[in-house]
Structures are given as C-alpha cells and as structure tokens.
Amino acid sequence: MIDAPYVAPVSSLAGSSPIPFRGAGFLPADSPKPMLSWIATMLVLCIWQIASLLGWVSPTFLPGPIAILSALGDLAISGKLWTDVSASLVRILVGWSLGTLAGLIIGISLALFAVARSIGVPLISALFPVPKIALLPLFIIWLGIGEGSKIFTLALAAFFPTAISTYTSIDSVPRNTIRMAQSFGVPIKSIIARVLIPGALPGIFSGMRISTALTLIVLVAAEMIGANEGIGAFVILSGTLMRSDQLLAGVVVLSILGLLIGTGISALDRAFLKWR
C-alpha cells in the first residue's frame, strides 16, 4: 500500500488578519545593479564636464574631466608619466617589501619569544603612533637626500603595522590547535610553519592593507618634500605652476596605483585564504 501524502486541513481565514512583512534586515533585497553605478558615475562626470564647458568654474580652480584626461595623455606621450610612475613604483616596492619583511620577522619573534616581547612590545607601541614622515628630515641627515632616506621612511611606515598585526594575530591563534599539534609530537618548526603562520595569515593580510595605504601616503609626502622624480614631486610641481589639470592627472594616477595595490592584496587573500 502506498501512503497518501499528508494534506494539512485548511481552516477558514474568517476573522484573521495577515501578518505584515516587517523587513529582512538592511541587506540589499535583490541583486546589485552594476548598470546603475555606471550611469551615476557617468552622470557626475557629464555634469562636471558641462559645468567647466559653460565656464561655471574656472579651469585653474577645477578643470573638467576631459582636460584632466588629455593632460594625462600628453604626459604619457611625452614619457614624463613613465619616469615619475616608475620612480614612485621602485620606491614603494623596495620600501614596502623591506618594511614588510622586517615586520614579519620581528612580529613572529615577538609572538614566540618572551624576551623579545618584553623588550619589543613597549618600544613598538611607543613608536607606532609617530608619523613616520616627520622623521624624513632626520633620515636625510643620516642617509643624504637620495633614495636611501625615502626608502627607509617608507620601510618604517610599512614595518610597524605589519609587526603589530603579525604578533597579535599569531597570539590569537587558538591555543587548543597548538596543544593538538603538540599532543601528536609535531616538532616546533612545523607548528610555526603549518599552524601559527597560516592561522595568523588573515590578520597579517589586514595588516598589509593598512601598511600599503600608509606607505602610499608617506610616499607622496616624501616625494613632495624632496624629490625630482615621482608622482608626488610631479603633483607639487604642477601646483606651483598652477597647472591644475596636470596636478589632477597625477592624483588620478595615484588613485589608480592605490586601487591596483588593493586589488593585488585581495587576489593574495583569495589565493591563500580560500579555506575561509
């Protein structure tokens, strides 16, 4: 015999009232609308362009998007763009890498060794809030006006957030997982490499987001203080020449750079943290 499916008896709705819908949280109810974002962006750019075409704002005060774009094009053709971008890129790459490497090494030592921690943590906490750019003049006295002092400042800017995020995130790896590894006799080197560091990686990556943003700021500031090449130097020079179009072209390049770095870290994130 086949069981008939259960059918719930329907009772009369007389005298009842429907329960009203009260919301589903502040989550976007349906799929995102990429078209809408594009249209909005285009609209803002169009209004801006029209405003500058009609002469509502003077081009020195705020040039229109097309003027900025053509300034960017001129810079690309003349080759000036590439010298500046590559000078900045070399500085940020070398400085950030050195600072990050040192930060990782120091951060791991702080997490693992009580001696390092008692010496290092107060020192690092005291120095972290110092705006690193304020030390550039001192480093110029030490290392001269060349690349050395700028790269050192950048490295320092990257070092502190990395060291702090590395040691705090190793610290917050659950003790139980370490005890588990110890209970199976896993040697300390493997515990560091395969338990502590992977467990700390999400925190280390968020530290890197902060450190790249900081180094970008310090880079521009350092180049504004004393450099012949670099996007920061170019922006400040355009300012003194009242060339707002070139100045903003430089800013556009900087935001693209920031965007690229962010995308790069997100890609690293996805590659290494796919277990989350």
Binding site: N176, T177, M180, S183
Partner: peptide, 16 residues
C-alpha cells in the same frame, strides 16, 4: 604516537 587525544572541539586546522 602511543597516547593520542581526541578533542572536544575537534581541533581541526581550518586551512587544511
């Protein structure tokens, strides 16, 4: 590993 644990919270490594 003569003496081996089984943990209450499983203690698996989430990245493996």
């Amino acid at each position: 590993n003569p003496l081996t644990y089984v943990f209450q919270d499983f203690s698996l490594l989430p990245w493996m």
